[in-house]
Simulated scan of single mutants.
Amino acid sequence: MSAQVDVVSAALFEGDQVLLVQRKNAPYQHYWSLPGGRIKAGETAHAAIHREIEEETGLKVPHFLAVQKHKSAGFTLQVFAATAPIAEATALDDAAAVRQISLKQIPDLPYTPDLWPIIRAAHHRLIT
């Protein structure tokens, strides 16, 4: 039996737009997803999400308004949600591309499993 892995992602919104990154590496190479990655040993989830966002997009997000946990086979995902100036994002590190996209357009993209319901839930938590 493998150990549980802890992962973080950021749902960054500006109006009805969300920031997505296109994965450069496997798994799900070339699929669209939220910026994020694994929490390093000894690192807090908050430190990890700040590091991952900056490494993948160059953005610095001062604070997050909501956090949701999602459990899946082999990992726990913590999704941090915030509003941010996402138009300033640049593809860095393991992101092949970044894209600011309308929420209405997400279902038409090739995206990682559960991305669309995670984004909807995060957006709902920010606006309510």
Results as ranks from 00 to 15, higher is better:
A66T: 09
A66D: 11
A66Q: 10
V67W: 07
V67L: 07
V67S: 11
Q68I: 04
Q68C: 11
Q68A: 13
K69V: 11
H70M: 09
K71F: 12
K71P: 01
S72V: 08
A73Q: 12
A73Y: 03
F75W: 13
F75E: 14
T76G: 08
T76W: 06
L77F: 01
Q78A: 13
V79G: 07
V79L: 14
F80E: 05
A81Y: 09
A81P: 07
A82E: 07
A82V: 12
A82I: 09
A84Q: 01
A84F: 03
P85M: 00
A87L: 08
A87S: 08
A87R: 02
A87T: 00
A87Y: 00
T90N: 11
A91I: 00
L92G: 03
L92E: 07
D93F: 15
D93H: 15
D93R: 13
D94Y: 15
A95S: 14
A96L: 14
V98S: 04
R99E: 09
R99K: 15
Q100P: 00
I101K: 00
S102T: 09
S102Y: 02
K104D: 13
Q105Y: 04
I106A: 13
P107A: 10
D108F: 11
D108E: 14
D108S: 14
L109H: 07
P110G: 02
Y111R: 08
Y111M: 10
Y111G: 06
Y111E: 03
T112D: 02
D114T: 03
D114Q: 10
D114Y: 05
D114H: 13
L115E: 05
